[in-house]
Design a protein around this nucleic acid. Sequence first.
RNA 1: GACUAAGUAGCUCAGUCGGUAGAGCACAUCCCUUUUAAGGAUGGGGUCCUGGGUUCGAAUCCCAGCUUAGUCACCA
Length: 504
Amino acid sequence: MSLELSEQELFRRQSAEQMRALGINPYPAPLYEVNVQTTEILENYPKDNTLYQEVSIAGRIMSRRIMGAAAFAVIQDSVGKIQLYIKRDEICPEEDKTMYNTVFKKLLDIGDIIGVKGYVFVTQMGETSIHVKELTVLSKSLRPLPVVKEKDGVIYDAFTNPEARYRQRYLDLIVNPEIKDVFTKRTKIINTIRNFFDEKGYLEVETPVLQNIPGGAAARPFITHHNALDIPLYLRIANELFLKRLIVGGFDGVYEFSRNFRNEGMDRTHNPEFTAMEVYVAYKDYFWMMDFTEEMIERVAIAINGDTKVTLGDKEIDFKRPYKRVTMGEAILEHTGYDINIMSEEELFAACKKMNIEVDSTMGKGKLIDEIFGEKCEHHYVQPTFIYDYPKEMSPLTKEHRSNPELTERFELFINGKELANAYSELNDPIDQLDRFQQQLKLQERGDTEAMFIDYDFVRALEYGMPPTSGMGIGIDRLTMFMTNSPSIQDVLFFPQMKPEKND
RNA sequence: GACUAAGUAGCUCAGUCGGUAGAGCACAUCCCUUUUAAGGAUGGGGUCCUGGGUUCGAAUCCCAGCUUAGUCACCA
């Protein structure tokens, strides 16, 4: 950010001072009574021209066309834009024409926020406009706005610089207001899920963001320090273990929209902080959770787009349930011809080599299977598909499969070749859980920075007994990307993480 | 982390073979009472991302760096 003021910035500061000299506060304190919004007028006026004869409306000046003693301007409020017709002798009925000649014509600029009172009419060119009788300065803008013009849907001089748009989202929202739609849909997605759970009687809860032991996922945490206790604290990578403690405590169903933090790479689909939603329901298993998940997703699709079919790039995704259900073993058999159920670790290793999948000797059977799936299968699942029955060593919080001890009762939902949700029959055997944690500790000792820590209190909680429970987590940012056809996570976050701006 | 591309006025962008820095919008001054992306005339505005190098001379060529985007890798 430069401390030097541009010519235009200097002019605007001078204009603000000149307003003060004229007794006009460029930042007045009193509220401004607004009685209508732009789109409401445009929807109703031509149909009924007796309406809106005394409007009071406020917004930001987006363009001006001054022709001597009359002028047109366009103001933008939170929902849209409308044209103003401003005539000198209307806003200055007395001898003193300062308000028009000086304040409106010279001291106001594009970007300033004003309030106007007047009546609605249609110009000779057929555009519904407000005939202004009174104009009030509400806020002076000191920086020039990128000027975007639009005619018949064609945008001229669009404000497109992605760096500026993400760093200065407020500016993006002003000049590209259509992006508001993505963010209102994001909120609607969250509200739809919340309503769905509340109808089922599940309780929305809040659990710690600052944790002594970052658990519930395999990821590198952010670390911070608590001064009074003089201990390290971690920003949460997941809320899973806390929600399960609440199931132990006796709730039937709990859920939380959880801002999680992971100290890992950033790209088009990963932001260091992101929003997950996790839900845990007692006395259920992962098959029940599949039904529940598809019901929830279908409802979200309809709430957002009015239809189960959603366009995603050049594809159409149909969120209508039921979704296809394929075990990981079936998926690999279908796409590679290998039957992992009858293969030893050595055979899997050789198969990976044959398929040009990068492997190393540290990888166990589960990891090898996961690699094969990721390389050869994942991208095939464009329409919503549940992949289930994952290898045990990849899933340390998941209950062992009811009929195959090498597997766990886990599923993930894939859409457009990407993981959207992850769920399981929760592991509630405390002995097994401790054993799995200890396996993770061994991985950690071998240098795996993402292996889980042992959470002895969580094990203690399980020792008191947790009912059979199924849990599910879903990435809200990714869901929003799917539902709004956004190719990048930065498009669904108001303020995506950016490298610090150089400030010299 | 690797590779590729981009970075020039407030915004969107040109800039030829290395030879005085350009346009449109925005801004300023003047004219204009129903205009339509931009009415007319005139004018002001630049750390050409940063730092080196080559050269009589660099926005332009070379090297390094910064930022952003894309692809890949890694990772839930």
